[in-house]
Simulated scan of single mutants.
Amino acid sequence: MIQLALALQDKDGRYAEHAGVVLASVFNNTASPVNVHILHDETLTDENKQKLLQLTARYKHTINFYPIVLPEEMLQVMAAVNSINIWTPACMYRLLLPALVEVEKIIYLDCDVLVNMDLAELWNTDLQHHYLGAVWDQGIREVAHVIHDKGLNPDLYFNSGVVLFSLNNIRSHVTWYQETINFLRNYPDSTMPDQDALNAVFGGNYLPLDLHYNFFNLTIPDHNYSSKIVHFAGPVKSWDQESPGWGLYRKYLRLTPWSPFRAIRKRRKRKVRYVNLRLKRIRKLKLRAKRRARAHVIFSKLRVARPGKSRRHHVMKSGKVRLLRPSGIRKLL
């Protein structure tokens, strides 16, 4: 079973939708069973949680929710890191995966990726003794001088949007958490705090993965998204209508409970059901009226066809013939 983790903070109620689209892209392309782990804070509403449950159940996978309360020591360190307000505290949740999820290994995905391939291919990667597997960051050359100052090598620097973690190997490195805290404390000017910390602590022992496992949208020739995990790193996300990935995002959005097309279909079904009920009632009324008219015609024919009484009644009523008593009766009288 594939273990998959996503992290989100959902202040405006939209990020749960993006997480749902990521899951739909995974479920639609992956045949193996998937066990999902959602790391979240109090901003995830019950309604959106129910939609995530509904989506997962529809594809016959499983899902778990982890309400995150960050350790006090990490909160104190994060308070000095200015870029946290840009990325939100949820970006730090992936750093706690070894302590949160009791599995041997796990795939972590950012909510701005779309999985357009079978995730089992990444899952079956043998990490051996490595802490994690990740893809070299395709945009790091632009800020190479920034990470140099933190002792990080741009040639080996990996992106943390798609990571295959060997949690058992990380747990065996008992000082991993304290090393993470120390890096954040020593470099409060970090512009990508979670990613920098992961590179600082685990960058010396990670497995470089093929580019198609975390292909930046901006570097894909002709925006050919087939057989790739596409990462919309940068200001333009897949859910922006001007994005070249908008069509692919909309394709997977249709598979989720957030789909506007699904709401339209529901309204259309309700309207069709209402019209059908009206037509059925009209047909019943017409049939009833037709039966009444037929019964009236039959009754009228029966009245005309009755002999004796009706004819005698009309003759007596006209006054032209006087009804005589039989002679036998006169004699008796």
Rank of each mutant, 00 (worst) to 15 (best):
V146C: 04
K51R: 15
V103W: 04
L96W: 15
A120Q: 15
N48S: 11
H296S: 14
P244I: 00
R250A: 07
K301L: 13
P244Y: 05
M1I: 02
W136N: 15
I68T: 11
A263P: 06
N224T: 01
D155R: 04
V113G: 03
V201A: 06
K105G: 11
P221K: 10
N205G: 01
V103M: 08
I181F: 07
L52Q: 10
L52N: 10
F27Q: 11
H129R: 02
H313L: 04
Y213S: 04
L333Y: 15
L323S: 12
D196I: 00
D110H: 09
F202Y: 09
V201R: 07
L253T: 01
M316H: 14
L53A: 07
N153P: 01
A19T: 11
W258P: 06
R267G: 05
H130G: 04
V236F: 03
A289Y: 11
N214H: 07
P244K: 03
V113P: 03
M78W: 07
I181E: 08
R278F: 09
V321Q: 10
H18I: 00
A134Q: 06
I63R: 08
L332T: 06
Q50N: 13
D149E: 14
G319R: 05
D196H: 15
Y274D: 15
W123Y: 13
M92S: 11
Y187W: 12
K301F: 10
K309N: 12
D222E: 12
F183G: 00
F216Q: 03
V236A: 08
F216Y: 15
N82S: 14
K290W: 06
Y59E: 12
Q3C: 12
L277S: 13
K286A: 09
Q50C: 04
I181Y: 13
R312I: 02
Q3V: 05
L253H: 04
Y274C: 03
A16H: 08
I2T: 02
N182S: 13
I147G: 06
P244W: 03
R330L: 13
H148W: 12
Q178R: 01
R288M: 08
G139I: 00
K269T: 01
W176G: 07
L287E: 13
Q128E: 15
L198C: 08
N48M: 08
I264C: 08
L70M: 09
V81A: 08
L70F: 13
